[in-house]
Amino acid sequence: MDKNSNAYTFLFAIIMVVIVAAALAFTATSLKPLQAENVRKEKMQSIISTIGVEASRDESAAKFDEFIKQQLSLKPDGTVDETVNAFTLDLAKETKKSNDQQRFPMYVAEKEGKTYYVIPLFGSGLWDAIWGYIALDGDKNTIIGASFDHKGETPGLGADINQSWYEDQYIGKTIFNEKGDFVSVKAIKGGAPLGDKHGVDAISGGTITSDGVNDMVEERLKNYIPYLKNN
C-alpha cells in the first residue's frame, strides 16, 4: 500500500487511535479502585485535620472512626434525613439541585470531651472546582479549623488556598456577629484589618479564587443556620 495515499493515512490513524484508546481505558479502569481509595482516605484526613487531628493517609480511616461520632444529612429546615449517607453525598451533584431538594452533610466530632461540627464546602474557583471543610467550636459560631483544596487553581497563586498559612487564618473567626446575624467569613483584598472577626487576608494575584472561597463559605454555611440555631 502506498504510504502517502489518503487511504493508508486514514487506516493508520484509525488503528493507532483504537489501540491507544483501548490501552488507556484498560489502565484507567484497573487503577480506579486504588485511586478512589486514595480520595476517600484524603477526605477523611481533611475532615479530621480541621479539628486538629493530624493523621497520615493510612491512619486516617481509624482516626476518623475514633473522632467522628455522627454523620448527619440535614434537610434545609435543619432536621436530619436518616435515609441519606452523609459521607457518600456528592456535593458536586447536590449543589446543582435547588436548595429545598438538597441534603447538607455534617460531621459531629468529639475530641477530649468537646463537641465540634465539621461542615463540608463545595464551590467554584477560577478554573475548576474548589472544596473544603470548616470546623465550628461547640458554640456553633467560632471556627476552629479550616481546610481547602482545589482541582486546578493557578499554582503559586490561587492554588495556595490549600496551604496552612491561608487555612490557619480562619481559626478563631466567627460566622455570626454580636447580634446573632449570619455574616460568614470573607477573604479581603488588600488584607483584613487587625482584629477583624469576620475577615482574613485574600491571596494577592488570586482574586477570583479568593472570591470563589468567599462565595463557597457563605453559600454553604448559610444552609446550616437552621440547624446551628436550633440545636
Partner: peptide
Amino acid sequence: PSRIRIIVQLLVVASLVILVDQVLKA
C-alpha cells in the same frame, strides 16, 4: 505517514503522559 507524523507523535506522548498521571494518582 509523514503527513500526520506530528499528530502521531503527540498521540504517543499524550497517552504515555496520561499513563504516568494515572499511575501516580494510584
